[in-house]
């Protein structure tokens, strides 16, 4: 499992950030999230979008130094999908990220308790009591691959701020 956010900044006007992310679960897709002030514009596209961004080098300057990656083994337990990722920022180890997905259920609110119980089973007290902030507003909506990406982005932001290893 690899996730590689690249950051770009618009030269003209107020600086805007574009996050480009890949997920090994959807290998033929590039997710990009444009941040402009409070608003976020997500875009799901072909891998060719990466090349397009390189062509736009005059508008967007790549900030390769903030390339982050979560890489590790992937397990399946019945219908659960568990991914253990070691998070690195520019080859510096930052921490361990655990992703748990319950694939049969498409509405987070229905299965959050179930996922929590599952996580308590192997994480013990480390398991979070609350759903991630991003999901809390979207508990009743149908889950999409983009929601996974948004949560990773949320986590990566935390890691960038953090100084110590989590």
């Amino acid at each position: 499992m690899i996730l590689m956010p690249n950051f770009g900044v618009v030269v003209a006007g107020p600086p805007r950030t574009v996050h480009l992310l890949n997920n090994s679960e959807q290998p033929a897709t590039v997710f990009s999230i444009l941040e402009s002030g409070q608003k976020q514009v997500p875009l799901v596209s072909d891998p060719l979008f990466m090349d397009l961004m390189k062509k736009l080098a005059s508008v967007y300057t790549g900030k390769q130094q903030t390339r982050m990656e979560a890489k590790g083994p992937r397990f399946e337990v019945a219908d659960f999908l568990v991914k253990l990722g070691t998070v690195t920022m520019n080859q510096n180890f930052k921490g361990v990220l655990v992703e748990v997905e319950y694939r049969p259920c498409v509405v987070p609110a229905y299965c959050w308790e179930l996922i929590r119980e599952f996580m308590q089973g192997f994480l013990g007290t480390c398991a979070p009591a609350q759903a991630p902030v991003y999901l809390q507003n979207r508990m009743q909506e149908i889950y999409q691959p983009l929601d996974t990406i948004q949560q990773y982005l949320e986590q990566f932001r935390e890691y960038r701020k953090a100084v110590t290893v989590r």
């Binding site: 319950y102 229905y110 299965c111 308790e113 179930l114 599952f118």
Partner: peptide, 13 residues
């Protein structure tokens, strides 16, 4: 299906 707990053991899973 996903939100109810078992009547027997009281757990989800």
């Amino acid at each position: 299906l996903f939100s109810d707990t078992c009547k027997g053991c009281g757990l989800h899973l």
